[in-house]
Computed example of a mutant assay.
Amino acid sequence: MTHWLEKVVLLLTADTTDVRKLAELAGGNPKTFYRGIRRADLELEGQNVDGMEFEDEIDASPRFTETDRAAFARYVFTASPKEERVAFLLRALLSFSTDTDAVLASYSTATMFEERAAAAFRTVLRSSSKRRAEQTEMIIARVGDPYAEAVLAPATGSLFTHLVASSRGKFMLALAKHVGNVPSFRNLIETKLDQTYSHHLLDHEAAIRQALAAH
């Protein structure tokens, strides 16, 4: 399998600024590759962008309404354990990717793990948002994954690495249930199952794979 960094290098060294050709070099469909990117943020003078979709030309992701906020807070308050709550937070961040600040503001942390998770997600979302101002960075962020998914999945993998061993299986199971239908998270879960040799994780393997198969 080609490593995603190879595509990044290919884009950075390409001798073209044509957005259609850059999308094709990244292995994407030019029609949908720039969803989530505003036409005004790209240098498009003299380029043929017929049939290509940009953020201001497609439906935006759902807004995080007061009804959503109440339901989210209620679930977080009642859900247990902490691994389940963090996985549900990820699900909300992916579902309301244009309102991530509102989602994070509504999340009440009860444990050190939750505080660390919320802080990590807030950091990567905000820092990556700034980087999207540059065309090349926006393209890199979208190689293979939608924007929020692309930055949250690696942050989640880092959280897993720093979890105490006894919580890892519970966290992977919660992720499988709530975001196992999202490609980058599914890949993260399957990779951890294949590469982590810990009975704390393997004890949950059957349930994790069952949860993935349910999507």
Rank of each mutant, 00 (worst) to 15 (best):
K192I: 15
R186N: 13
H178G: 02
V164H: 13
L193Y: 07
G180M: 07
A174V: 05
E190F: 02
T191L: 09
G169Y: 06
N181K: 09
K192N: 13
L173A: 10
G180C: 10
Q195D: 14
K170Q: 11
A174M: 03
M172V: 14
N187P: 00
S184P: 11
N181P: 01
V179D: 00
A165W: 11
V179S: 04
Y197D: 15
Q195M: 05
S198D: 14
L193H: 10
A165L: 11
S198M: 10
S167T: 08
I189T: 02
R186E: 15
L173V: 03
R168H: 03
S198L: 14
V164W: 11
N181D: 15
N187M: 12
Y197T: 10
V164K: 13
I189R: 01
V182H: 01
Y197S: 11
H178D: 14
F185K: 00
S184C: 07
A174F: 03
K177C: 09
T196K: 03
G180A: 13
K192D: 13
S166W: 07
K170D: 15
L188S: 08
L175H: 00
G169H: 04
L188I: 10
V182A: 13
M172Q: 10
K177A: 14
T196R: 02
F171D: 00
S167D: 15
K192L: 15
K177V: 04
L175M: 08
Y197L: 07
D194S: 12
V179Y: 01
K170C: 07
T196S: 06
K192H: 12
S166N: 08
H178S: 14
N187C: 12
Y197C: 05
S166Y: 12
V182D: 00
A174D: 03
R186W: 05
S167W: 10
L193F: 00
L188T: 00
S166L: 08
S198Q: 13
D194W: 02
V182G: 03
N187G: 12
L188P: 10
V164P: 07
P183G: 12
A165E: 15
G169L: 11
V164E: 15
S198G: 06
G180H: 06
K177Y: 12
V179R: 04
R186S: 12
K177F: 07
A176F: 01
K170W: 14
V179H: 04
K170N: 14
I189A: 05
F185I: 07
T191P: 03
N187Q: 14
L175W: 01
N181F: 07
S166Q: 11
R168W: 11
L188W: 06
G169C: 06
V182R: 04
Q195L: 12
G180P: 07
D194A: 15
S184Q: 11
M172R: 03
A176P: 06
L173W: 02
S166F: 10
K177G: 09
V164T: 13
L188E: 12
L175I: 01
I189H: 02
Y197H: 13
S184K: 10
H178K: 09
S184W: 02
P183L: 11
S198Y: 04
E190I: 10
L188K: 05
Q195I: 07
